[in-house]
Simulated assay, not measured.
Amino acid sequence: MLSDSKWAAKYCKLCAEVCEYCAEQCEAHDHDHCQRCAESCRACAEACRKMAA
């Protein structure tokens, strides 16, 4: 991001996709730690989407 790479937005979009997938997988489990992980992954995905814009 700092070097203004032409790939930065694509990296961020991919990161958002990976985080969303992780959140979906974690949400499938009822354990508290899985639910917390899902929340963190959703927050990360949102941050990545903002950076990709």
Rank of each mutant, 00 (worst) to 15 (best):
C48I: 00
K13W: 04
K50T: 01
D30K: 12
E39V: 06
C12T: 02
A43M: 06
W7N: 15
R49Q: 02
D4Q: 14
A8E: 03
C48G: 01
D30S: 08
M51Q: 08
L2M: 13
E46F: 03
Y21G: 05
C15G: 14
D30T: 09
C37F: 14
R42P: 06
A53E: 11
E27H: 01
C19W: 14
A52C: 04
A52H: 11
C12K: 05
Q25P: 03
E39R: 02
A8H: 07
A45G: 02
R49C: 00
W7T: 14
S40M: 14
E20K: 01
S40I: 08
C12R: 09
R42S: 10
L2T: 14
C37H: 11
A8K: 07
A16K: 10
L2E: 09
M1Q: 13
E24Q: 05
A9E: 00
Q35Y: 07
C44T: 06
D32R: 15
R49D: 00
C41Q: 05
K13C: 04
K10E: 03
K10C: 01
C12Y: 10
A45I: 01
C19N: 13
C26A: 13
D32Q: 14
A52R: 14
K13R: 09
D32K: 15
A16W: 04
C34V: 02
K13Q: 11
H31V: 08
M51R: 15
A53Y: 15
C44W: 07
E46M: 08
S3H: 05
A45H: 02
S40A: 14
M1N: 12
E27R: 07
R36H: 07
R36Y: 12
M1P: 11
S3E: 10
Q35H: 07
E24K: 03
R36N: 06
H31Y: 08
A47G: 03
H33L: 05
A38W: 01
C22P: 13
C48V: 02
C41L: 00
M1H: 15
A47P: 00
C19P: 10
D30P: 03
V18S: 10
D4S: 11
K6L: 04
S3D: 10
E20A: 00
W7A: 15
L14E: 14
D4P: 09
L14Q: 14
A43R: 07
C34G: 04
A16C: 04
A23G: 04
D32N: 04
Q25T: 08
A45M: 00
K50Y: 05
A47I: 03
A23Q: 00
A16E: 01
Y11R: 08
C15P: 07
H33Y: 13
C48F: 06
E27V: 11
E27Y: 01
K10M: 02
R36T: 06
D30H: 09
K50I: 00
Q25H: 00
A52D: 03
M51H: 07
A38P: 00
A53S: 15
C26H: 06
K10P: 00
C12S: 05
E20D: 03
C34T: 09
A9S: 05
C12A: 11
A53T: 11
C41H: 02
A47T: 01
A43T: 08
K6I: 05
A9T: 01
E27P: 02
K50N: 05
S5Q: 01
E17Q: 13
W7L: 13
C37K: 13
K13V: 07
K13I: 04
E17H: 11
C44A: 11
A16T: 04
D30A: 11
A9K: 12
A23E: 06
